[in-house]
């Protein structure tokens, strides 16, 4: 598996798209810092970018890579290698190179602007960790979609739809259900609903750290307990871990049973 990871990673590191992605973040980091020169504010702006863009890019890249490396996969399948190793290796290669582009692309400008002397370092680290998690999650989800759909166009469509659903539509439905049932106690429901969407989960996790926790605690005891203590951070990270692990497990399970 390590070998497959190595070759996938190596293969991607030489693809144009990895550079485009890396340069995009590099540019974004510099432009943000150039425009306001305030690390903490740049971190907030960056959050908006990360929770929308990182999942989208993870999704599209994942699907694209999966379909494009079909031949590579078939070549590997005839080699004495365990099947799940092939897919997990490829997956880790893609997710790893994407995460690296993200971390380096954003890290370099921020470090150059004096991140280490700033107290925004924890917020920033959390941002990057969450970004890396989102990359892992959405690449895994897109690999699952691609594995279950032979048809490229269909697979691509489903993947983008999934992103659209989790990034926008889910929140819309969520909001509507909150408004419709506003006379009932809703805090537990809304916390649960947040847990079931990795984008919402990452967003609240970052908000927790960005000192808006008390603002979120505004609504009642359950929120207050969740957001006011470390419980919230711990549960959020555990859930992010689940979100990463479950698609990988499904991927490995499905891969074992698929015909090529």
């Amino acid at each position: 598996m390590i070998k497959i990871l190595k070759y996938s990673f190596y293969d991607l590191m030489r693809s144009r798209w990895s550079y485009v992605y890396f340069l995009f973040y590099l540019l974004l980091g510099f432009v943000l810092l150039f425009l306001n020169n305030d690390l903490s504010k740049a971190v907030i702006t960056l959050m908006n970018v990360i929770i929308v863009l990182v999942p989208l890019i993870g999704t599209i890249f994942g699907v694209m890579y999966f379909y494009n490396s079909k031949e590579f996969t078939e070549l590997l399948l005839a080699q004495p290698i365990k099947r799940s190793s092939i897919f997990i290796g490829q997956y880790l290669g893609v997710a790893g190179s994407l995460s690296m582009s993200l971390v380096l692309g954003l890290g370099i400008p921020f470090v150059m602007y004096g991140l280490f002397e700033s107290n925004a370092i924890w917020d920033f680290s959390l941002l990057l960790i969450t970004g890396a998690f989102l990359t892992l999650i959405f690449t895994a989800l897109s690999f699952n979609i691609a594995l279950s759909n032979e048809n490229k166009i269909k697979g691509f469509g489903y993947a983008v739809l999934m992103w659209l659903f989790l990034a926008v539509i889910y929140d819309g439905l969520f909001l509507m259900s909150l408004i419709v049932f506003e006379q009932y106690p809703l805090d537990s429901f809304s916390l649960a609903a947040t847990m079931f969407n990795p984008i919402d989960l990452s967003r609240t996790l970052i908000l927790l750290k960005l000192d808006i926790s008390a603002l979120l605690g505004y609504t009642g005891a359950v929120f207050k307990q969740f957001f006011g203590t470390y419980i919230g951070v711990v549960i959020s990270f555990v859930m992010l871990g689940f979100w990463t692990l479950l698609p990988i497990l499904r991927l490995s399970f499905k891969a074992k049973r698929k015909d090529f």
């Binding site: 539509i169 929140d171 909001l175 408004i179 809703l186 809304s190 967003r203 603002l215």
Partner: peptide, 20 residues
């Protein structure tokens, strides 16, 4: 305005849907 009406919706702070 929405948060005023239904406080729990604060959990959607800074989401893409809200921005839209």
């Amino acid at each position: 305005y929405i948060v005023n009406r239904t406080p729990e919706t604060i959990i959607l702070l800074r989401s893409l849907f809200m921005d839209i």
